[in-house]
Design a protein around this nucleic acid. Structure first.
Lengths: 349, 349
DNA sequence: TCCGAGAACCGAAACGTTTTGGTTCGCAAT
DNA sequence: ATTGCGAACCAAAACGTTTCGGTTCTCGGA
């Protein structure tokens, strides 16, 4: 077992005190350029890398931030948001010398426990809050703990620094396009209730239709999983009377599930009815028909969130950040309403 | 700013030394049951939770393990393996009081750097090695660092404790089924070269066909991305002469890409040709046709890997563990070869 | 009554950094 | 020659645990 090389070894080898070594390699004043060079050279030669353990204790910093994602194992498997988000977060953290500890909570309370433990054990210096709920219990916890927080896609007026990508522009474009194409019976499949983005998307759907003089079609509740999209198709396509000509799903997964089930039931998308998603996952370009959706940028969101969090940790009060808003991604699954004036089916094949 | 409550506060409040507090709450002998009770009660009342920082330094343990996933941001977005794997890992770690730091490396060297840094900074007590390559440079690094390692789906004879799910049974079932259905021109779309699982899958495909007296059809190289599956379709379906009746893809994503492109080119799957995947991602059940594939268990693999790693860290030499092997998942995308005796098309719709 | 052996408890060191509060030194100004 | 003053450097404390090596106490046995 090799003994670990510490700052003491470097100091001894270079013939200086450990204080000088620390000052030299952290770029603090009080050490001449000549000795700084020498110390750096020695440190390099003996292969010294400061131990995070000692450093954390001394600096009262963990140099680590936390993220707890709350998904049951089933949904998470195909959730495309986090991979991109993580990539963005990581790319920024690594430059700052920070690491990310990631946990998954299976339930609401489990998630809360994980956060609490990470914070109270002083494992982390800051946290990301994603998938924010209407009265999110994590807010109180974090306020109590006085730990830096960045909220991702939170509601306006959130008490913590936030980064957001405005969902509205893309969704509005989408709804406009839908109306333009002659659809009048427009249903919605919601996300899991309680989440702020679920509410936002449904509200915008409802209000846009109302302000266009259209009674919002049925709204069935999903939970962001493919399966729930599939179930929604069963509900919405059951009776001819209530059948919509267009279904706006709160995310792409549900849209995929919906289309798959609709196809089983003998419906042609977009010939018989159009279906749209939200997120812009890569898969959407490979379904047939290709999925019309709203394109989001999880990677950029992750970058912004990480930057904001690091700033918070450095003691700044970062402004809220808005990255470039969402945009519509028009593809085959949305077409003219059946029986409408300009009804030209444009399926694949 | 509230002052942090430390072990000193507990000791003072309970009227004992800090050594006793530590012993009491860590279940070490040398403290009477009565005082143990009292200390526990006091600790609870003042809300003391041992700081990981002090604890890490003293115990020479970070109580953290590391995983670096190597994907460029593009591929990772839709990679379904890691989410499940992470879930399994996490569920075990949390019980052991461990946390996971997760990083993503965009390139081979970046990944290596991340691992190196995590280890040298003493941030982690052990690492997971996934997506193992043929001569994986991480092996040498970890051996040099003398840090606990668990290799996931490594080749037999791997110098580190390993957890595996045997890919062969499921894949063999699949190939048998393909042959049974009368296919004779059977192509393969490989995974990214250099990875051990890419090689394994291609080798089994090749050898099984040979031993059945069939010349393995063309093998085109992919990289596990949807896009590469799509490109493979362009290659394989270009000329009538070389066209296979069945295409075995090294993972589900490529199969999805392949099917999508094949459909664009006017081919009917499985009427004109069959396509199979590998992984058993949830999406496969929602494509039309549904994807025939080999079902894997990333969650269980994660659990086993985490258990093994924790055992290593505790100083044991865990045996290699094999979780239940893969099995075939027969769905619509595989059907009888066109023109074969029992050719009954069974598409969806 | 004395001795010896555990049990219970404690003080202090150790872990590896950063940071604080000096001390020494050289040099310019007086 | 003395003083003053930065620059360079250092010893020691601090961070919050765990653990090592004692010390005291109690109690049973001789």
């Amino acid at each position: 077992m090799k003994r670990r090389v510490t700052i003491l070894d470097v100091a001894a080898e270079a013939g200086v005190s450990i204080a000088s070594v620390s000052a030299a390699l952290n770029g603090r004043p009080g050490v001449s350029e000549a000795t700084r060079q020498r110390i750096a050279e020695v440190a390099d030669r003996v292969g010294w890398i400061p131990s995070m353990r000692g450093r954390s204790l001394s600096r009262k910093r963990a140099f680590t931030v936390g993220l707890v994602i709350q998904r049951d194992a089933h949904v998470i498997e195909s959730d495309p948001f986090f991979a991109g988000f993580l990539g963005g977060v990581e790319s920024v953290l690594v430059d700052g010398g920070y690491a990310l500890v990631l946990q998954v909570g299976e339930s609401r309370t489990a998630t809360l426990d994980r956060y609490q433990r990470l914070v109270l054990e002083h494992r982390i210096d800051g946290v990301f809050l994603t998938d924010i709920e209407d009265q999110d219990p994590r807010f109180a916890l974090m306020a109590e703990a006085e730990i830096p927080v960045v909220a991702v896609n939170s509601a306006p007026g959130c008490p913590f620094p936030s980064v957001r990508q405005d969902y509205a522009p893309g969704l509005r474009q989408l709804l406009d396009a839908i109306l333009e194409l002659g659809h009048r019976r427009i249903a919605h499949v919601t996300g899991r209730s309680g989440y702020i983005h679920s509410g936002q998307r449904e509200r915008l759907w409802r209000e846009t239709l109302r302000s266009n003089g259209i009674r919002p079609g049925p709204s069935v509740s999903g939970d962001f999983s493919i399966q729930s999209g599939s179930r929604a198709a069963d509900w919405l396509l059951a009776t001819r009377r209530t059948r919509p000509t267009c279904v706006v799903c709160a995310n792409d997964l549900m849209a995929v599930g919906f289309i798959a089930r609709a196809s089983d039931l003998g419906f042609d998308v977009p010939g018989d009815l159009s279906v749209t998603g939200f997120d812009g996952i890569e898969f959407g370009a490979y379904t047939r028909p290709r999925l019309t959706t709203v394109s989001t940028a999880p990677y950029a969101l992750g970058e912004a969130a990480a930057r904001s969090l690091l700033a918070s940790i450095e003691g700044q009060r970062p402004d809220d950040v808005d990255i470039a808003p969402t945009t519509m991604l028009l593809r085959e699954s949305l077409a003219a309403a059946p029986g409408s004036v300009c009804s030209s089916s444009q399926q694949g094949r």
